[in-house]
Design a protein around this nucleic acid. Structure first.
Length: 581
DNA sequence: GACTGCGGCGCG
DNA sequence: AAAGCGCGCCGCAGTC
């Protein structure tokens, strides 16, 4: 451990197309440096990784790792400077975030485009060259990376609870590796099954630009029932006016409101909307755009949500409708191992707050069933509604009543989220278990709160300010739980990724060739959705993959909440197809 | 024509 | 029956 080099930094050389591979010691001092021509990068990284797995430090995972994966090279660990910068520069646990916040070129949250040359006063020919060389929005050169790494390590070392922040940096970076690998491998997607579902739901594929015949028929039925032969159903304002003319008293055209009314136009309209949604979001155009050679390769955006959840960009990977799940289908000779965590967020809350009653309610069983058995509420549905209200800040109706009942039974857990809400309402910042902090309020928000407290403030301004304070309170209330759940899930997939990569080579398989050189021979992650994972596995390896998923969940629980009584049970299934739940 | 905001609805 | 959090995507409508 002492002699092992903890860091190996990868960045561009100061000039030219070469890369620098710099070995650092534990104090972040340079030990050796190797200059590598672009064509030799994959080989050099593979050699370094084989000699002694290290934590690769690089500017931005996709900028470096996509090419390595394409060349068949996988790494065990990394430190993603861009993602970690965003966390540390905003974390309330960092004592002096000044140096990080001053390093503006690293402040690129996912999806934020880098400023163009015009916005960079110091732009030189060199800057333009490096910007053109890669699409990364952050500096690519080794010197900048080394300086940023030193700032980050210093910030962590001087922070409140540095161990937690180290864990978070590692988990976030591991997530970046998972995202790149899942995109490289692709989700096994059965385009024929997808087409079959579309035809079954919508009828035959129409010519380009036209609606399926059944949708056209439904539209005519709606127009007839509303007495408006040319009504454009896709325009909510026009549709709303037509509904009013037909004396259907709705405030919006949402399906929830429509379905509460009796009128001949309602049923065909609801069916039209449902079909329209499927057609526009995941119809044939989607299939043409996103599925190639039996693989769906979405763009995952690690850290894309303020809470630390992932987002996605293009293709809607995080919103695949359940009715389309059967199109997720293992290759011949392979199986899909799916797992989701039961009631992840409530369990995370129980662990964070060390609420003994809540931990007991969930121990070894469905948490909601446990709440019913404790006599707190009558039905599982009530337990669920109450718990969601607790996590999201529900106040009205049944939700409000049930939340008050949970507050009596689970004082520690409810105290934690109530406190988070109170901090948010005051304009404060809250943090997750590992130290990701909520963004500060907008200056306009603070100003509105201040003005509402002046004696001359109007009643309307006071009411507006109270409402926006409560809105922010619901956000921070949920932030601590959603964000910590995201940390648990990152730890889960980080551990799972490593243990799957250590499974034995299951042999060549032509069918899995679209997965690429790194993934065609053993079980690998192909999808991750907040609290669910999907592993594509050679059939003979599926049980081992399932065991790895369970072990990884246990280790995530131990890592975040050592000694906690809270468990994180999984719903796990092995099948050829992903089931529509 | 490009952009922005919004309604609506899919996911957790 | 829909509520309370976080997202992305589509189409429409208003703006420049």
């Amino acid at each position: 451990m002492v002699s092992a080099s903890p860091w190996c930094l990868l960045g561009r050389a100061a000039q030219g197309p070469d890369a620098l591979l710099i070995d650092l010691d534990a104090g972040c001092a340079e030990r050796t440096r190797e200059q590598i021509a672009p064509g030799d990068l994959a080989r050099a990284v593979a050699a370094r990784e084989a000699a002694a797995p290290t934590r690769w430090v690089w500017s931005d995972t996709p900028a470096w790792y996509d090419a390595l994966l394409a060349a068949g090279v996988r790494v065990e660990r990394c430190h993603d400077l861009r993602l970690v910068h965003v966390i540390l520069a905003r974390s309330a646990r960092v004592a002096d975030p000044g140096p990080l916040q001053a390093a503006e070129s690293w402040d690129r949250p996912p999806d934020a485009p880098a400023p163009g040359p015009a916005e960079q006063p110091g732009a030189t020919l060199f800057d333009l060259e490096t910007a053109a060389a890669g699409s990364s929005p952050v500096p690519q050169d080794a010197q900048s990376a080394l300086e940023e790494l030193r700032r980050q390590l210093e910030a962590i070392a001087g922070a409140d609870e540095p161990t937690a922040l180290r864990l978070l940096a590692a988990a976030e970076s591991a997530g970046a590796l998972v995202a790149a690998e899942m995109r490289a491998a692709g989700m096994p997607w059965d385009a024929q099954e997808h087409d079959r579902i579309l035809v079954e739901s919508l009828g035959a594929r129409p010519r380009a630009g036209a609606l399926p015949a059944r949708m056209e028929e439904l539209a005519q039925q709606v127009r007839g029932a509303l007495g408006d032969p040319h009504l454009a159903l896709d325009s909510p304002p026009r549709l709303l006016r037509a509904l009013h003319r037909a004396e259907i008293p709705v405030d919006s055209t949402s399906k929830w409101e429509l379905s509460a009314h009796e009128h001949p136009a309602i049923a065909p309209l609801l069916r039209y909307k449902e079909m329209s949604r499927l057609l526009t979001a995941n119809g044939w155009a989607w299939l043409d755009a996103w599925v190639r050679e039996g693989r769906y390769r979405p763009v995952y955006v690690p850290g894309g949500v303020v809470t630390g959840r992932w987002a996605s960009s293009g293709g809607g990977a995080l919103q695949i409708p359940r009715r389309l799940r059967p199109a997720l289908r293992a290759d011949p000779g392979w199986l899909l191992v799916s797992a989701d965590v039961s009631q992840l967020e409530p369990r995370v809350l129980a662990a964070m707050s060390q609420d003994p009653a809540m931990a007991a309610a969930g121990a070894g069983r469905d948490l909601y069933a446990g709440i019913v058995e404790s006599g707190i509420v009558a039905t599982r549905q009530e337990a669920k509604v109450g718990m969601l209200g607790a996590l999201y800040g529900g106040t009205s109706g049944d939700s409000g009543v049930l939340v008050r009942r949970l507050r009596v039974s689970f004082p520690a857990a409810m105290g934690l989220v109530d406190d988070a809400a109170a901090v948010g309402e005051r304009g404060g910042t809250v943090s997750t278990w590992l130290g990701r902090s909520s963004p500060p309020p907008d200056p306009r928000w603070l100003e509105a709160q201040r003005e509402a407290n002046l004696p001359e403030a109007s009643a309307a301004a006071q009411e507006r300010a109270r409402r926006s304070a409560r809105d922010r309170g619901r956000f921070t209330r949920n932030f601590v739980v959603q964000g910590t759940a995201a940390e648990w899930a990152l730890s889960w997939i980080a551990a799972l990724r490593l243990s799957l990569s250590r499974l034995p080579d299951a042999g060549a398989d032509d069918a899995a060739e679209p997965s690429g050189p790194v993934f065609a021979r053993r079980a690998h992650l192909v999808h991750f959705l907040h609290d669910e994972v999907l592993v594509h596995s050679p059939a003979a390896q599926a049980e081992d993959a399932a065991a790895a998923i369970r072990d990884a969940a246990e280790s995530a629980g131990r890592l975040l909440f050592p000694g906690s009584a809270v468990d994180f049970p999984l719903e796990l299934a092995i099948a050829e197809r992903s089931e529509a739940k």
